[in-house]
């Protein structure tokens, strides 16, 4: 209260000294006037206290909405950050050199041990059309998307098979889209940014979208050329992916083996099984690769002979429609 009475802008409270001086200062004043003076001072004090209370109420009234808004914003940001991984899909990242070596270097003996798939894949059909070539080489066209779980599944045997005809560069880890997509986060690679070189085969890999959703649809990625669009329309009028054209003679609409054999595993775990024809994923991928190899060999004129005449490829070729 001393602070209040000492403030020049606020009403002063009667102090001890004023009381002491009163007899001489108000000696001439009547008693009623002194009482009025004290009453005025008391009212001023009350008004000052009321003013401070009003000021506090104003601050609370103004700051409460700011606090509420900031709290809502904090919740939005925290939840967004906490769930970003699930919502956006796992990002493409560099692949382990060991894994790449395992995927592109499956031993010939393992291919032969894997042989043909246990049953013929219904996704492969013969086109009855002419050869598909580019630069004087048989051409393999893959059209898919990074979010697509069946594309994720089919890239494994495609990469394995094409490794027998040439070399890959720039393959990166990728994953299919997260839940609620079926077989969420299936580990795979992306053909976006990867290159393939071969004496026998020309490969085109088109990833039309990423695994990240924007405005409820996946982000566009690679553009499909007019010629490839025409090929897809001819053999896959509904435009379902993955679509693979193996030299113009066979097309694949979907995956050639069961995605469950790789779902839930890591890239390294899947790659490690590729040299083991007895494991479920190794057998599935290697035998599917044998089928693709047999189809491609039709376009390469049986070259390279060591690959195209190997027992595994020959056995798998008999399952082609």
């Amino acid at each position: 209260m001393e602070a209040v009475s000492s403030s020049p802008t606020r009403p002063t409270r009667p102090t001890r000294s004023t009381h002491q001086r009163r007899p001489s200062q108000s000696a001439g004043k009547p008693k009623g006037a002194a009482l009025k003076e004290r009453e005025a001072a008391r009212r001023a004090l009350a008004a000052s206290a009321q003013g401070r209370a009003n000021q506090r109420r104003r601050l609370v009234t103004v700051l409460a909405p700011i606090g509420a808004v900031l709290a809502v914003l904090a919740v939005l940001v925290v939840v967004r950050v906490a769930t970003s991984q699930d919502h956006a899909g796992k990002k493409t990242r560099s692949a382990s050199a060991i894994v790449i070596a395992q995927v592109t270097g499956v031993p010939a003996a393992t291919f032969d041990a894997a042989g043909a798939p246990a049953k013929r894949s219904p996704t492969i059909t013969a086109t009855g059309g002419g050869a598909l070539t580019a630069d004087g080489k048989t051409r393999v066209l893959y059209i898919g998307a990074e979010y697509c779980p069946f594309c994720a599944t089919e890239r494994w045997p495609l990469i394995v098979a094409l490794s027998r005809f040439g070399t890959w560069h720039g393959l990166k880890y990728s994953y299919s889209a997260p839940s609620p997509e079926v077989f969420p986060d299936t580990p795979t690679f992306t053909f976006h940014g990867a290159t393939y070189a071969s004496r026998y085969v020309s490969f085109t890999g088109v990833e039309t979208a990423t695994n990240r959703q924007v405005d409820g649809s996946y982000e566009p990625l690679d553009k499909l050329g007019a010629d490839d669009t025409a090929i897809m329309k001819q053999y896959d009028p509904q435009g379902s992916i993955p679509f693979t054209d193996l030299g113009g003679r066979w097309v694949i609409n979907g995956a050639t083996y069961d995605p469950t054999v790789i779902h839930g595993k890591t890239h390294a775990a899947i790659a490690a099984t590729l040299a083991q024809a007895t494991s479920a994923s190794g057998k599935a991928i290697d035998s599917a690769a044998n089928v693709l190899t047999a189809a491609i060999c039709q376009g390469t004129g049986g070259q390279p002979a060591a690959v195209c005449t190997s027992p595994g490829v020959v056995a798998a070729g008999k399952t082609l429609p």
Partner: peptide, 13 residues
């Protein structure tokens, strides 16, 4: 504004 921040963070990213 709060609704639009939600749209930016969760829908448009």
């Amino acid at each position: 504004a709060l609704y639009l921040v939600w749209v930016e963070l969760y829908q448009v990213e």
